[in-house]
Design a protein around this nucleic acid. Structure first.
Lengths: 206, 206
DNA sequence: GATTAAAACTAATGATAGTTAGAATTTTGA
DNA sequence: TCAAAATTCTAACTATCATTAGTTTTAATC
């Protein structure tokens, strides 16, 4: 299969290209990959479907770029959050901050990110693969975060870090299915979810 | 909108009808609602697309039935699990059993259930609504389970039961994105996930 | 074996999808 | 101002989709 080129001629980013990406991200995240037509995306930026092909090689190349931007955004956001607290902060604080960063990018900032979380599983596998590296790099951030918590003894010995990471991120990513504006705030949710994983809900002293 | 009738003439269930449902559930859960054509489903049971209309009124009526069966299956499975342990068991045991039942139905038994978890958000809203009652009834099971845990004092006071329920079920439902046969067993995952929510991962005494 | 009902097929319809080639338009830069 | 480059549009093409009407085949019943 030919590599999907992105038709970005130089390093300056034309205006309409970003507008197309924005519109595509919004529509993909709302209605999904298959249910969103290029005509809808084009219409959202006052264009005709055929014109999109000047900027993107195909519908798949378009969503691929949306997916990648989504991961980059959330990665950056979590990174920034973690960097904003003092070094050698306790693991509990780092975790809470990382969770806040993840949820914030997903729920508030994020058509690109939510497109990724929602649609990654339903796009052609050939396209998924092209997004794997950038995706793994974000997962590595969490892997290292948890490993450090374990190394410093702030995570109980015996905890399976892989199940932990997948479960934690799973919980976070699924919030997109029930979060709605005007309801619970992102911070409320983040704090509670951090607490669940840190100290649990049981009132018994273990 | 006309109510979707199901074309089930009596209470005996014809063989091919179930075969169609099975095939549809398998394909929907793998490729999603939009990406699965009636031709594919028909082909999987050695039929032609048009023939499906003898059994189902539309593609939407077909997935609606798959969705409903999925919820019924998981509801039943969790219910059975809970009933299988002694009454007045501690909350921690009840929770672990419910989690096992949920994951088992989702990951092992479950094309119908996984179709539901994966596709509910991407089918037409008019169809979602037709599945709401049966869906809420399953959510009620969890609501009551957690409320009882709180009433009996086995859940810390102050825990927001709604965020708890949505977070817990979110974690469970997302396992479908990373579980694969031959890897971690369902029971391993269930036990770990129950522990995360019950006592947390922190080694510090809170 | 004839009659009826059930089940599946054939072949078409209209809608919509992604995509493309070439013409028209707008923007840019000398 | 004018030519070249960048951008968008027009108008199709092919493919595929859900759906339907009418026909044929299979199964059941008497």
């Amino acid at each position: 299969m030919a590599v999907l080129k992105t038709k970005r001629s130089s390093n300056k980013v034309p205006k309409s290209r970003k507008q197309i990406l924005d519109a595509a991200a919004a529509l993909f995240s709302q209605h999904g990959f298959d249910a969103t037509s290029l005509r809808e995306i084009a219409s959202a930026v006052n264009m005709k479907a055929g014109s999109l092909y000047y900027h993107f090689e195909s519908k798949e190349a378009l969503i691929l770029e949306v997916l990648n931007i989504g991961i980059e955004n959330i990665h950056q956001n979590v990174q920034n959050r973690i960097s904003s607290i003092p070094e050698n902060s306790p693991f509990s604080l780092i975790l809470e901050e990382a969770i806040k960063g993840h949820l914030e990018a997903l729920l508030e900032k994020g058509d690109y990110t939510s497109t990724n979380i929602r649609n990654y599983g339903q796009i052609p596998i050939s396209i998924q693969k092209l997004s794997l590296d950038i995706r793994n790099s974000y997962e590595d951030l969490w892997r290292e975060l948890l490993e450090e918590g374990a190394r410093k003894g702030e995570i109980k010995p015996g905890v399976d870090l892989k199940i932990l990471r997948l479960s934690l991120l799973g919980m976070l990513n699924r919030t997109i299915e029930w979060y709605h504006e005007g309801g619970l705030s992102v911070d409320e949710i983040a704090i509670d979810q951090a607490r669940f994983f840190l100290v649990g809900i049981s009132s018994e002293s273990s």
